[in-house]
Amino acid sequence: MPWLAPAASAGTAEDPGRPAVHDDVDAPATLQLDADAFEALVVDELDRLPDDMVDCLDNVVFVVEDRPEDGSLDLLGLYDGWALTERDRYGVGELPDRIILYREPHLAVCDDETALRDEIHTTLVHEIAHFYGIDDDRLHELGWA
């Protein structure tokens, strides 16, 4: 899987088509972005992933939620499904696997839009890798955790 090469620090050039990120003067040093704008960033970053990474995703939906069920800010994303390596059968009528990205935890760890895009990208690669059966230990080794 060439798309799962070790992570590199990725900086992105200014892109006028990106949604604006607005800082609230009275808010703590946390990036502010509404749900629609965050989802637009996720879609944009998903579109930027290599074709060979996403073309084989079968019966997978991407979901944006504000926070994990426990309300914490510790979890950036979650793969909810069965990895390809663990499927003994998979047929018609199966509920889709879900890749969930959590908006508020991402905003809490990012200072600006570039950092947010990088973190969304890393989270997408990380959770998609789980779909392919790659575990957290290997993702840590490769710098995708």
Score class of each variant (00 low, 15 high):
residue 143 G to C: 05
residue 104 E to G: 11
residue 117 R to M: 10
residue 46 L to T: 00
residue 80 D to T: 14
residue 9 S to K: 03
residue 73 L to Q: 14
residue 33 L to Y: 10
residue 75 L to Y: 00
residue 28 P to N: 14
residue 74 D to P: 00
residue 97 D to I: 07
residue 21 V to N: 02
residue 57 L to A: 11
residue 76 L to I: 00
residue 56 C to I: 06
residue 4 L to Q: 15
residue 124 L to W: 15
residue 30 T to W: 08
residue 29 A to H: 12
residue 73 L to N: 15
residue 137 D to S: 00
residue 121 H to M: 10
residue 128 I to F: 03
residue 112 D to G: 03
residue 89 R to H: 14
residue 53 M to H: 00
residue 14 E to G: 03
residue 15 D to T: 13
residue 97 D to F: 00
residue 107 L to P: 05
residue 94 E to M: 12
residue 68 P to G: 14
residue 66 D to Q: 10
residue 49 L to H: 10
residue 13 A to V: 09
residue 69 E to C: 07
residue 86 E to K: 06
residue 46 L to Q: 05
residue 79 Y to K: 11
residue 11 G to V: 02
residue 2 P to R: 02
residue 38 F to T: 08
residue 15 D to V: 15
residue 60 V to N: 08
residue 87 R to A: 12
residue 11 G to K: 04
residue 82 W to V: 14
residue 143 G to K: 02
residue 81 G to L: 09
residue 81 G to S: 14
residue 123 T to W: 03
residue 76 L to R: 02
residue 25 V to G: 03
residue 29 A to V: 12
residue 22 H to I: 10
residue 62 F to Q: 07
residue 145 A to W: 05
residue 133 G to V: 13
residue 86 E to V: 11
residue 18 R to V: 11
residue 22 H to C: 02
residue 136 D to W: 02
residue 12 T to H: 04
residue 126 H to C: 09
residue 95 L to R: 05
residue 33 L to E: 10
residue 130 H to M: 02
residue 49 L to P: 08
residue 68 P to L: 09
residue 67 R to Y: 08
residue 84 L to N: 08
residue 2 P to C: 01
residue 28 P to V: 15
residue 10 A to R: 11
residue 105 P to V: 06
residue 12 T to E: 06
residue 118 D to R: 15
residue 31 L to I: 15
residue 110 C to K: 03
residue 94 E to D: 09
residue 96 P to F: 00
residue 120 I to C: 12
residue 55 D to T: 12
residue 10 A to H: 04
residue 14 E to P: 01
residue 96 P to R: 01
residue 40 A to F: 00
residue 71 G to R: 02
residue 22 H to D: 05
residue 50 P to L: 02
residue 66 D to I: 04
residue 42 V to M: 07
residue 75 L to H: 04
residue 17 G to D: 13
residue 17 G to R: 12
residue 45 E to W: 04
residue 76 L to Y: 05
residue 126 H to V: 04
residue 128 I to S: 04
residue 66 D to F: 12
residue 120 I to Q: 09
residue 72 S to W: 04
residue 135 D to F: 14
residue 2 P to V: 02
residue 87 R to S: 10
residue 89 R to P: 14
residue 112 D to L: 05
residue 94 E to F: 07
residue 96 P to I: 01
residue 126 H to P: 07
residue 130 H to A: 08
residue 12 T to R: 00
residue 93 G to V: 13
residue 72 S to A: 07
residue 48 R to D: 11
residue 77 G to E: 15
residue 88 D to L: 09
residue 80 D to S: 14
residue 131 F to G: 11
residue 14 E to F: 02
residue 107 L to G: 04
residue 57 L to Q: 11
residue 116 L to D: 13
residue 111 D to G: 10
residue 99 I to L: 10
residue 96 P to D: 02
residue 102 Y to Q: 07
residue 25 V to L: 13
residue 131 F to R: 08
residue 100 I to H: 01
residue 64 V to L: 05
residue 52 D to E: 08
residue 103 R to W: 05
residue 104 E to F: 08
residue 125 V to A: 12
residue 82 W to F: 03
residue 8 A to Y: 01
